[in-house]
Write a protein that binds this DNA or RNA. Structure first.
Lengths: 408, 408
DNA sequence: GTGCGTTTGTTGCGAGTACGAACATATCCG
DNA sequence: CGGATATGTTCGTACTCGCAACAAACGCAC
């Protein structure tokens, strides 16, 4: 059954070390504890003991090490109203921060997010034109330099930079393969930004990061399997969480559900295919039919909700809901998720007629999968991408608190 | 950020113990070593040392324990032609077996598969009619009793039964939610078979098990992210492997790619939706157009290959290839797999015109994802479901060799 | 306010596992 | 037949977690 002589030219298929060594246990436990307080918020040591199943003494040692690493802070509990010796509360340190960058067609947004999950700052620098990759990198680097020099306290530790890109991003290296609305092709954005800032930098698709953000801190808290679909001005993006982990695919491009077929006789999409979800469902049409400006997307909810039956608005909403349902049929059948989270104008569509959407999805999808799924609107607003990008930057610290913290 | 008072009614979201204890390390290492020899075949102890990165002495201890548990056998190597002291070869024991059951519309097939991956026996018991669930369970239990009494040696250890069902199966409990072609609805097949045989029994969708089989032993050896699509007499099934692990979804129903939309003006599928891949692409039509009988599916390859351009056969092949390409577009965009494996008549379609299929998929899918994907035909033949079902039964042993082996 | 029960932090000890070094052994090669 | 090489074997060490005993801090009852 085995290949007796594996070709020496190809890299060995097995990773360098599969075996669980001992420091691995420690690492895994440190990571578990840190992830717990990071995602679920401050917790007492006794709560951590319960949650992990580890011994009191072990938790004490682990928390002690995390404190020494400067990643968490212990504080006296305030009136817990419980019998027994009070247990110190472990809080992720707000002095450990991630920086985030989000290039858009008319601006570059930079954020500062603490390990406690709080968005500490957000700076939006508008650009005259659609920024090129080097424009965006320059603007981001300048804002970051400003922030580090003036705004951030000297004892704040920056663990890295996370970039949320509205386009296709290679998993390793953070190369933007294609960002149609920015006009970027094969831009090594993460590398450029890393050398400009001197900070470890990683980039990923914005909707994938949105899925992580919603899954950990938003509408999908505690949900293992969810699909996030976002309707933005530029199109429909998607991200998938399976068992709590982001689905990346082999190159990091996975999750592009916006380009599933929903209409065989539909229009040709900019991607070259016909009848993608993205071509049949769009914010622009909703704005047009409601008479809103491009900048008034935040009023979409009210405009859609107030539509009279039979009106052009109602007809268009219904049309888009029905196409969305076709895409979601495929999602339900393929992923069998616990939850589908809809953001942006897809959230508005859902809010406009949740029952119709749910009924249409249910009637088209298979038994089993259709019974377990819930459809909800996204919970995080403007902070979503900032939080998601920060999670990207925090990933190495959360995976290996000891060495990552020491390295920075 | 945290919920200070989690509702006591809901089950705690965290599993009983997240913390890595010590026996976990041992377990993980035992599992790693066993999985290595199980999937990649016999390996010398020194090869295991290299593959795992563990110490020689550690590997010796681990292999020793696996030998004591009766899961592997050590043997002297035959002429390795290498300098240095020869390293004993570790082989998974063929005396540890899994039983497999595969109910079909006209038969029930039972198999015996060794931990070494070899299919030792296969018994196909034809049924007069489409078997009900209790029919199938009775037949399977009878065959299993026969096998254990007569065919299997007394020192053979049966670890469990794996069932491959052509339908939707609940992940926990092995309840067949819906098997349209068998006419089964909500049948607790695994539980019935477990009580009839006294063996731990688990069931899963046949295409999902096919994906596991192809991924570990077939066309997808060594591939982490793959999608398997199988074209059978009864329809199109699918299974997905992500990072080497089967994608189950929250209820175990994931992977039903046969019901993605490929034609908005298509026929109504038995699932209730319109224009599913399964309705536009089918073995029956191919057999009809080639003038073959239902039982002659094995001659499909030759019939399709020999079609003259413009002939009805060629036209139908082209039509089905084009619809298949639409479904694969969605697969590529959503999963970004390294490999797409096509089995059954979908493999025949692929073989009939691989270039057209590849071109059609490529032209419709997104950059990035489309560049990394390969399309291949399935490698395993009739053994695929037997091997896949056996993997299901072996799962507990592979995950925790020590306790699972002791339990049986 | 004082004592009791309860809960949890703290400390020291013990168990289990993997690593590393030194030695033993088996092969190939000249 | 001896040297070089690679690997099995053995033993001591380091590390981490669990456990038990003790100490500390809180609520509660009187």
């Amino acid at each position: 059954m085995a290949d007796p002589t594996p070709a020496p030219t190809t890299a060995p298929s097995t990773p360098p070390d599969l075996g669980a060594r001992f420091d691995r246990v420690r690492r895994a436990n440190l990571a578990t504890v840190l992830a717990l307080v990071h995602v679920d918020g401050p917790a007492s040591r006794s709560a951590l003991t319960q949650a992990t199943g580890l011994n009191r003494s072990t938790i004490a040692a682990l928390v002690g090490e995390l404190v020494e690493l400067g990643l968490v802070v212990e504080s006296d509990p305030v009136g817990s109203n419980k019998v027994g010796r009070p247990s110190p509360v472990v809080t992720p340190s707000a002095r450990v921060v991630a920086l985030t960058v989000n290039p858009e067609i008319d601006a570059v947004t930079v954020g500062v997010v603490g390990l406690d999950g709080a968005v500490q700052h957000r700076v939006r620098r508008e650009t005259a034109d659609v920024p090129t990759a080097s424009d965006a990198a320059r603007v981001a680097a300048a804002v970051i330099a400003d922030l580090r020099a003036e705004t951030l306290a000297s004892d704040v530790r920056v663990v890295g930079v996370g970039v949320a890109v509205p386009g296709l991003v290679d998993a390793t290296g953070g190369v933007v393969r294609l960002a149609p609305h920015l006009g970027w092709v094969d831009e090594p954005f993460a590398a450029v930004l890393a050398s400009a800032t001197g900070l470890p930098t990683d980039a990923a698709n914005d909707a994938s990061l949105g899925a992580i953000a919603e899954g950990r801190f938003g509408a999908g808290r505690g949900v293992g399997d969810l699909v996030f679909l976002n309707g933005g001005a530029s199109g429909v993006g998607g991200g998938v969480l399976l068992d709590g982990r982001p689905m990346t695919g082999v190159g990091g491009y996975a999750g592009e559900i916006g380009h599933t077929l929903v209409n065989s006789s539909g229009r040709v999409c900019h991607c070259g295919a016909v009848g993608c979800l993205e071509t049949e469902v769009g914010q622009a049409r909703l704005l047009a039919v409601t008479g809103l400006d491009r900048g008034q997307a935040d009023r979409l909810d009210a405009a859609l909700a107030g539509a009279e039956p039979g009106s052009p608005v109602a007809v268009e909403v219904r049309r888009q809901i029905d196409f969305l349902a076709v895409a979601l049929r495929g999602v339900v059948n393929a992923f069998n998720p616990e939850l589908i989270v809809l953001g942006g104008f897809l959230g508005s569509l859902h809010a406009a007629d949740p029952d119709r959407l749910a009924e249409r999805v249910r009637s088209q999808s298979l038994p089993g999968a259709r019974d377990g799924v819930r459809l909800v609107r996204a919970a995080l607003g403007a902070d979503r991408l900032t939080i998601g990008a920060a999670e990207l930057a925090f990933a190495s610290v959360l995976a290996d608190p000891a060495s990552a913290a020491r390295a920075s």
